[in-house]
Simulated scan of single mutants.
Amino acid sequence: MKVSIPLVLVAVLAGCGRSESPPQTNIPTVEELAADPKRLKELRQQCKTDRPKLGDVLCNRVAEATRKRFYGDGQTPYTPPKEFPKF
């Protein structure tokens, strides 16, 4: 009885080894997507129609690349016009 409990415990712990991590697919980076507007447009459309198939990681990167292309690097200072518009 005293020997069987440690053996069972060792067997259970041996079966609880590290699980294999899922294979990483080749998901493009935000910079790669921002540099390729044609691919970005296609992926944005696919994310709108079939987000569960593409996955949240890719669609979040697509959204971030779109934001980056729209706003730029964020370092451009605001320069108001010299003349105010006349309505």
Rank of each mutant, 00 (worst) to 15 (best):
R69C: 11
P28Y: 04
R39T: 09
G55Q: 13
S19T: 09
P85V: 06
P81T: 05
V10A: 12
E64F: 06
V3I: 10
C16P: 02
K38I: 15
V10T: 09
T66C: 01
D50N: 06
P81L: 04
F70H: 13
A65P: 02
V62L: 05
I5R: 06
C59Q: 05
C47F: 02
E32R: 07
E64V: 11
V57W: 02
L54Y: 11
P77H: 00
R39W: 03
K41S: 10
I27W: 01
Y78N: 10
E32P: 01
P77D: 00
E31R: 07
E42C: 01
E64L: 14
E32A: 13
L58D: 14
A35N: 13
K82N: 04
E31H: 05
G74H: 08
G17D: 06
T66P: 01
C16L: 11
V62A: 04
P80G: 14
Q75H: 13
R67E: 10
E42G: 02
R69A: 15
F70K: 15
I27R: 03
T49V: 13
P23V: 05
D50W: 01
E64Y: 03
Q45C: 03
K68N: 06
L33S: 15
G72W: 07
F70Y: 12
R18L: 15
I27A: 03
A35Y: 06
D36C: 11
E20Y: 08
R51E: 15
A63P: 01
A63S: 07
Q24F: 07
T76N: 13
A34H: 03
C59L: 05
I5Y: 07
K48E: 00
E83V: 13
D56P: 05
E32H: 04
T25Y: 00
T25K: 00
S4G: 04
R18I: 11
V3Q: 11
F84G: 07
F70V: 12
F87N: 06
C47V: 00
E32S: 11
A11W: 14
P28M: 04
M1W: 05
D56S: 12
A11H: 10
P77W: 01
P23T: 03
P22I: 02
L58I: 13
